[in-house]
Amino acid sequence: MKVVVIGGTGLIGSKLVAELGRHGHEAVPAAPGTGVDALTGEGLAEVLEGARVVVDVSNSPSFADDDVMEFFRTSTTNLLKAEAAAGVTHHVALSVVGTERLQESGYFRAKQAQEELIKASGIPYSIVHATQFFEFMKAVAAAATDGDTVRLAPVRIQPVHSDDVAGAVARTAAGTPVEGVVEVAGPDAFPLDELIRKALAAENDPRAVVTDPRATYFGAELRETTLLPGPGAHLGATRFADWIAEQQA
């Protein structure tokens, strides 16, 4: 089965291409570096020829509110139009656990717009919601940093390893469209402030993590369960403590 992976050269995309290949699928990485640009439409018709499944794990190069909305609206519209013309029978997109609860954030408003376009397209689809990746703890800390202080709310988060996300997306792509959302998370939940404190300490980062119940997450206010998956989420096997130990080794 031919599967085209949009964003197939990035962190998740490269792992996904490898995982699909191991299971006998023809996985084709598609990104600007391979001559395919969903934002402009360049190369889409050619790469989608003969494809049954398209997986979109691309991300905006800019997280500014207007830029990220333009990226997801335009690239998703172009991609869905090209898929319809090519006869693609399953569209899979990677999104974020809690997207619908984080609409004060421009990034998550853009992800919600992406999901709505997919649902309205008429193409059978599956949306995979993942919690924050272990690899993105630095980005979470950076977004919450003011000088030498990182302000974070003590709400729960259940981070996941990128390998486990790629595995979940691959299984979803190889399966029947769910016409809804599949969730994936790590095996353990932590208070967000404690998690980032551990991540920074592991890298000898001198920034101080301050617990602030009013601190926002990429511009959005948080409740205790905002970042947590619901019942029935697929849980990855990799524990954060083991991943940290591996990074230090």
Rank of each mutant, 00 (worst) to 15 (best):
F190Y: 15
E83K: 00
L79R: 02
I118D: 03
P154G: 14
A185V: 12
Q103L: 15
D65N: 13
V92K: 03
P177F: 03
A143D: 11
A139H: 02
T99D: 10
Q112W: 09
E135P: 05
K138N: 14
D163Y: 15
F134Q: 03
M69S: 15
V165G: 07
K111Q: 08
A82P: 07
K198R: 09
V68Q: 11
I123L: 06
S75F: 00
D66E: 15
Q112K: 11
L80N: 02
A168T: 04
L102N: 08
K119H: 03
V184A: 00
V169T: 05
G167N: 11
K198T: 12
F71L: 05
R171I: 09
G147N: 10
E179A: 13
V184S: 02
G180M: 12
A185P: 07
A173Y: 12
E116R: 09
V181C: 05
K81R: 14
F71D: 00
N78Q: 08
V97Q: 01
T74P: 00
D164G: 14
A142M: 01
A153R: 06
F134G: 00
R109H: 03
E70D: 14
L79P: 01
A142N: 01
I118W: 04
P187K: 06
S105M: 05
F133I: 00
T76W: 02
A85E: 11
Q103I: 13
L200N: 13
H161Q: 06
A113Y: 07
V97G: 09
